[in-house]
Computed example of a mutant assay.
Amino acid sequence: MSRKFLAEMIGTFWLVFGGCGSAVLAAVFPYAQGDANPLGLGFLGVSLAFGLTLLTMAYTIGHISGCHINPAVSFGLWASGRFPGSSLLPYITAQVLGGLIAGGLLLGIANGRAGFELSGSNPLATNGFGAHSPGGYGLLAALIIEVVLTFIFLLIILGTTHKDAIKDLAGVPIGLSLVLIHLISIPITNTSVNPARSTGVAFWAGGEAIGQLWLFWLAPIVGALLAGWVQRNLLDGPKD
């Protein structure tokens, strides 16, 4: 378990550092005179960054811990019968710790630029709804999109890692699905589908990011549990 704990912590660190880091440090990089850089990454670049972090970690730590790097994934695998409940707490602890380390390091790096401050609707790439939704979407829209996208995300993970699937290639569709998820939902919630990702930056941003964090635990876990149930009871073939 110590190897798995370390792998999950490193993997979640890389997801938050790479994905949120692309948003904080490179999405709209300012010129010295304060003008926005037209070559900034934007939504597409940030979406690709999140997908690439997951894809690279899938092949780096997948053989050690399964590369959950997301509490919702751990819950979904548990609900599908593929992950023991006794491992949930250590996995989730490792994931949240990795996210917190990444968020703190990102804040320290961002503070190295003159004029940086935790301001705007999504400081430090935090997630939110209402005034903290990039596109101004409300709580209900945020709840629905996070449940639905996490549900689909888990079905993709469970399907591509099924015993009858071509598991050697599973990291590719899983990583690409996270890109698509971000392309859909960055305007709505700044995309969570991962409570550790949300916590890792909300903790350091404080304020409303903490006040709204409950949704980004509740919705992804509900979506993941639903996907695990559907996979186990409706999609899996008959038991031998």
Rank of each mutant, 00 (worst) to 15 (best):
D240N: 14
L54F: 14
N37W: 08
N111F: 06
P220G: 12
W214Y: 01
N127W: 02
G40I: 13
A165W: 05
V193M: 13
P71N: 03
F29E: 07
D164T: 09
Q95A: 02
Q212A: 06
D164C: 04
T161F: 01
F151S: 03
Q231K: 12
S192K: 02
I174F: 08
A227K: 11
L235A: 08
I157K: 05
G171C: 02
I166C: 04
N233H: 15
L180D: 09
A209E: 06
G211I: 01
L105P: 03
I145M: 06
V147G: 00
A72G: 08
Q33L: 05
N190R: 14
I69K: 00
A72M: 08
I156F: 11
S74G: 07
G206I: 01
G159H: 10
P195G: 00
S192V: 07
W229C: 11
G206E: 08
Y59K: 02
A27R: 14
L100F: 15
H132P: 05
L107R: 00
V222G: 09
T56A: 15
F153D: 10
I10F: 12
T53H: 03
F151K: 02
N233Q: 15
A7C: 04
S74E: 05
F75M: 06
S74Y: 09
G138H: 13
I144A: 15
L107S: 01
F151L: 12
A205V: 12
A224N: 10
G171V: 01
I184K: 02
D236K: 09
G66Y: 10
Y59W: 13
N122S: 09
V201S: 03
I166D: 13
A27T: 09
P38F: 13
I188V: 15
F43S: 14
A219I: 03
I188D: 04
P84W: 11
A36P: 10
F5V: 11
G19D: 13
G99R: 12
C67V: 08
Y59L: 05
W204A: 06
R113T: 08
T160I: 08
T199C: 08
V201W: 05
A170L: 03
W78R: 00
G135P: 10
H132V: 02
I61R: 00
S177G: 15
L106A: 07
A72L: 05
A196W: 00
G128C: 13
F29D: 07
G200S: 14
K4C: 03
F83T: 00
A170Y: 07
A7V: 04
H68C: 01
G237E: 03
L149M: 14
G108K: 05
I174L: 09
I188E: 03
P173M: 13
F17T: 01
G159D: 08
N194R: 03
T60D: 03
Y59I: 00
D164K: 11
D35N: 13
L89Y: 02
T160E: 12
S177H: 14
G200C: 12
W217Q: 00
